[in-house]
């Protein structure tokens, strides 16, 4: 009778604690694993600065170059739709902000729900387009392994369950909310051990690329 509420309590309690713990430990391990390998300082005479071009690349790689966009508009657009939609629904939905507030001790203003709702639809559309692309684009098809599809699913489920819970399309509500939270826990647990890590490491990668180019006086 009360299974749904028990499930929600478990998802909000024990399961969340476990998932968050694995996530934090895992991410730190991964970052240590990467940074411990170091990068030897070059003895060549620099032609430019490393820090600023590195920082610039961190930001500039967010925008595609024109040629790439023209050749693969679907990859670029689906990527934008998904990432922007995800960031809005993840970071600007009031209940989520309350969660961050409880975890890190500070919050920020959110967006009205109808906007977040639209962002979620956009993110889901983007993800579906990305999956279609992955299944049909010969390059992506060849590159993709099981992990790529797993990561897709791990990202898709929280968006889907969140949407269904918000619109009360799963009953009872505690079950819907519980499923949503559980799907995020699944994501958190697998995050450090999959390509989801790119969320953090892309800043390192972009910085290294920009810094190494900057050292040689190249705009990257």
């Amino acid at each position: 009778m009360n299974d749904a509420m028990d499930f929600l309590l478990w998802a909000r309690g024990t399961a969340f604690d476990v998932a968050l713990t694995i996530f934090i430990i895992g991410v730190i391990i991964r970052l240590f694993e990467i940074l411990s390998l170091g990068r030897p300082r070059s003895l060549a005479e620099p032609k430019g600065n490393q820090l600023l071009p590195g920082m610039k690349s961190v930001i500039s790689r967010t925008l595609p170059d024109n040629g790439t966009f023209k050749r693969q508009p679907l990859t670029v657009i689906a990527g934008y739709l998904f990432h922007i939609g995800l960031l809005i629904s993840l970071l600007l939905f009031i209940p989520h902000i309350e969660l961050f507030n409880a975890t890190v001790g500070f919050g920020w203003p959110g967006l009205p729900n109808p906007i977040v709702d639209a962002a979620t639809v956009i993110a889901i559309t983007g993800l579906l387009a990305a999956l279609w692309n992955r299944l049909t684009n010969p390059v992506m098809k060849l590159l993709s392994d099981k992990e790529d599809y797993l990561v897709w699913l791990l990202t898709f489920l929280p968006l889907l369950t969140g949407y269904l819970a918000y619109h009360r399309m799963i009953e009872p509500y505690p079950l819907a909310l519980g499923l949503h939270i559980l799907s995020i826990e699944l994501l958190l647990i697998l995050f450090p051990f999959t390509k989801l890590m790119h969320t953090f490491t892309l800043f390192l990668a972009r910085w290294y690329n920009g810094a190494m180019s900057g050292f040689r006086g190249v705009q990257s």
């Binding site: 992955r134 490491t201 390192l204 990668a205």
Partner: peptide, 16 residues
């Protein structure tokens, strides 16, 4: 090295 590890960790097989 660290860049290589960061690069491989970041690739999401987008194919661009």
């Amino acid at each position: 090295d660290a860049p290589v590890a960061a690069f491989f960790s970041s690739c999401v097989s987008c194919g661009l």
